[in-house]
Write a protein that binds this DNA or RNA. Structure first.
Lengths: 327, 327
DNA sequence: CTGAAAGCGCTTACAG
DNA sequence: CTGAAAGCGCTTACAG
């Protein structure tokens, strides 16, 4: 249908090889005159390079693959933005596939698609891979990296926040403001992230010689509803005077339910949330947050994926406390 | 590096053609025995099909391309979710490219990447293409469709809401609640969407024999900040008693600034917003919205892209008013 | 049921 | 500076 290199060659009276070289801007292989002629004809023929053919013959692709969770956390947007920005800088395309948070079969399907495509690298965003899929990924020889997911073992290359520090600093912030009874809400403690944050929380409490009640910690999956439910469990007369929300949305759930109960924030209940997306700024009172550097996770992750020498190194992106109206 | 069809053929003692047929599940071309043997060897060799080669020879790809705005509106998430869901149903991959809202060069780059890849179809989400890029897209012969963008001419295939109706119904809702002075905030009237909504707004006002002041309409680009600024212009003693926000975020901007002024919502000022994403439900008071069917835009758009007979038809997805606490 | 052969559109040593 | 030729990994009429 569309024009090929051969059509151009014919029209220009040169070989396909020369056309290929001109179009790929290989230096020193042709005269200025040929180049101009070839380029002009290419344009006039509406020529578009066939990427499949190029990838087949060069055996490498200009694509990086991203696997993200279908039940998207609202922070993944920023990570993806970062990935795209960095990809564009390198002239790469991004192919994105959704996979369920805990659906090994969907994960496998997504992985295979990327492997068949022989992508340049694979970024796994906020998803914990099933063991067999991790093995599949590793067997593929394709460079990969986890973003915003850390594993128990540090052997897997990742870019994420230091979740222990997140838990610790959030708690510390509250303790400094005089709170002794601090709740922790909507964290999934079956995963490494949740465990680390709880560990950080406990460390800060113990260091301040504060005791911890088991039911100050309400588990969840980081959702808005988990926040609401947790606050309902605390009730109208919560024992705690401050709460750490596992995500901005969870914290907003806590906030709304607290307001529903007529509890004043921050006067009667302080709230700090983890993530620091724009949501924290559009609610009232605005939420104090432990802000993560999501955009940087995306850019840095992409860079390190492309850098052969860095392939196995894991790294933390910085976090910071942003004090607003809720503490 | 990795195993090819030839390696399998050799190991199985059959031809590459047979392997190809088995692996593609072509019926009636081989004995059950051969098939099982070939499949087993394929697995043991960690065989992964080379998509480039397949696409090159079959001259069609299993990929659909999506171009979205880099300055993402928060509703595009839902559209993209819909696209992915439908793509997975059809065994297709999705390649996503960001392009600036008004950067013709980035648009062209994104388009060319997709065209070179000979994708099966192109979905343009919430972006207005520059004329020359539209021409490029059309010349490519690749099926395409605009999502959540309607053009002046109805000649371009799109899936979107009826923006005239959005403007009309939002206004109508307010009028029914006794409002006579109604503001319209953060709409970009340089685009078709904004123009249609304003037209719907005016029609409803005129039909109710209400007059319209020019400065009840505050332009903007649908952002949170536009909402805040608009409310600042209305001031502490706004002439209007109700405001239509061009997006959920814009409406939240209005809401927050109004609360800042000590204006009570909805008692002193009613607010209705357009979009109806989850944001409307997590703020207090919850926002009444004209809710758009974004997820359906994604699924329907993808379906129609794949359906040859429907390629030129444009369609509206339904809208509905969801009454909450702000009106 | 199976295979030999041609070909998809491109790149790149190799030889001039 | 330029071209002929081989080859990337697969699919698919065609002939048996």
């Amino acid at each position: 249908m569309s024009a090929t290199i051969k059509d151009i060659a014919e029209a220009a009276g040169v070989s396909a090889a020369t056309v290929s070289r001109v179009l790929a801007n290989k230096e020193g292989f042709y005269s200025q005159a040929t180049a101009t002629r070839v380029r002009k004809i290419a344009v006039s023929l509406d020529y578009e390079k066939n990427t499949s053919a190029v990838e087949l013959v060069t055996r490498k692709s200009r694509v990086i693959g991203v696997i993200i969770s279908a039940t998207k956390t609202n922070f993944s947007d920023k990570i993806i933005e970062g990935i795209h920005a960095e990809a564009i800088r390198h002239g790469l395309s991004v192919i994105m596939l959704y996979a369920g948070q805990n659906d090994p079969q969907l994960q496998e399907q997504a992985l295979r698609t990327l492997i068949e495509r022989a992508v340049k690298g694979i970024l796994v965003v906020a998803i914990q891979l099933a063991d067999e899929n991790l093995a599949l990924l590793q067997a593929s020889q394709i460079p990969y990296r986890f973003l915003s997911t850390s594993y128990n073992s540090n052997k897997l290359p990742s870019i994420a926040s230091d979740d222990y520090q997140i838990g610790y600093q959030a708690t510390q912030h509250l303790i400094e403001r005089g709170h002794h009874k601090i709740g922790l809400v909507a964290m999934d403690t079956s995963g490494h992230i949740g465990q680390q944050r709880v560990a950080g929380y406990k460390a800060a409490m113990i260091q301040a010689a504060l005791s911890i009640e088991d039911d100050w910690i309400k588990e969840g999956m980081y959702t808005y509803e988990d926040g609401v439910r947790a606050m309902q469990t605390f009730g109208r007369q919560p024992e705690v005077t401050a709460i750490i929300g596992a995500s901005d949305l969870a914290a907003i759930g806590v906030l709304n339910q607290a307001m529903q109960y007529g509890i004043q924030v921050p006067k009667q209940l302080a709230i700090i949330s983890i993530d620091g997306t724009y949501l924290a700024r559009i609610v009232r009172p605005q939420l104090t947050t432990v802000t993560q550097a999501f955009y940087e996770m995306g850019t840095l992750g992409t860079q390190m994926l492309l850098d052969q020498t860095q392939q196995t190194v894991s790294q933390f992106t910085p976090i910071k406390i942003e004090t607003r109206q809720s503490t």
